[in-house]
């Protein structure tokens, strides 16, 4: 398969397929789920950036979104619940030429893995984190999570969630992320652009993608289909570029503030290391191909 057509244009579908493990399809995601949309926007972003495919590595934890690692035709690592970021940290430090990104869900990255996320952000580790936030633990059947809006009904908050959710951009920004953006799966072009911006920067970059989960979140909270949720995203998203991240929290059925909230410069972990030690010789220490 070649994405370059006879008339010189690119066949987008073929190009996208080069980034997919076609032998693993169909995927496991439900009809109306937004994870595939987030994945596709990410692939399109990477395609346009022309980063050699072998220089990319994706790491995920556990959950519906984390399954993305298994569909991307990259060096892909599907690790344990919550631990994608420290795994990615090790991978990046061992092979600094790799563009390492984490593609995982809100529960994985912010509940069980929350500690790792804030510390990677604090260090300004040069990894990109794409977080699909569907407000729920999808794979286990719809339990309340740390992003579930207050009053939402879930299988473990049958009377309505009585906890406040995390505001993910605020948390990532406060911990030190140098790039923070949020979009919904309605904003496919914007996701693509944000992913490209994140990959163009050095340091810890965070892109949140609000996604429908009609099966176990929407169905219990007034959005029975994916289309219902997309309509809600379309009608209620407010683009507020540069908004103070502390003001972008989400309420059940409320407005969703989207946009790029942080785009800053700060030395990365790698910068600090090489400032002290020069270009450390990990490349020469890697166990190279057998002759």
């Amino acid at each position: 398969m070649n994405a370059l057509l006879e008339d010189g244009t690119i066949d987008q579908e073929t190009a996208v397929e080069q980034f997919l493990r076609m032998d693993r399809l169909p995927h496991i995601w439900c009809p109306g789920c937004g994870i595939g949309t987030a994945m596709r926007s990410t692939i399109e972003a990477l395609l346009e950036m022309n980063i050699p495919q072998e220089d990319l590595a994706v790491v995920s934890g556990i959950g519906c979104t984390a399954r993305t690692a298994g569909y991307l035709k990259l060096d892909s690592f599907h690790t344990t619940h919550g631990r994608a970021i420290p795994f990615a940290t090790g991978l990046k430090l061992a092979n600094p030429k790799l563009n390492v990104f984490v593609f995982s869900g809100d529960g994985d990255l912010f509940a069980i893995g929350g500690n790792h996320l804030i510390h990677a952000a604090r260090r300004n580790m040069d990894i990109k984190v794409i977080c699909v936030n569907n407000f729920i633990y999808g794979m286990t059947g719809g339990q309340v999570g740390c992003t579930t809006p207050t009053h939402s009904k879930t299988s473990t908050s049958p009377y309505g969630n009585y906890e406040p959710p995390f505001n993910l951009p605020f948390l990532a920004a406060a911990a030190g992320a140098v790039y923070v953006a949020r979009w919904t799966t309605y904003h496919v072009r914007q996701i693509k652009r944000s992913v490209q911006e994140a990959f163009s920067k050095r340091g810890f970059c965070f892109v949140e993608v609000i996604s429908p989960c009609p099966t176990v979140y929407g169905s219990r909270n007034g959005f029975p289909t994916g289309l219902d949720m997309m309509k809600y995203f379309k009608a209620n998203s407010q683009t507020l570029a540069g908004a103070d991240p502390r003001d972008v929290g989400i309420e059940l059925g409320g407005k969703i503030k989207v946009g790029k909230f942080v785009d800053a410069e700060r030395p990365t972990f790698q910068n600090m290391l090489s400032e002290m030690w020069g270009d450390i010789g990990l490349q020469e220490n890697r166990m190279v191909e057998a002759e």
Binding site: V59, D75, F77, T79, T80, G82, R83, I85, P86, F87, A88, T89, G90, L91, K92, L93, A94, N95, L98, N115, H116, H119, F269, L273, I280, G281, L282, E284, N285, R286, M287, V288
Partner: peptide, 27 residues
Amino acid sequence: GGVFIQMEDEIASMSAILGGSWGGVKS
């Protein structure tokens, strides 16, 4: 020419060395 990192906990430490090993470095 190696890298030392003090992680946030032992869970992260164990995860990081698995990543390091797949990165091609004895960890």
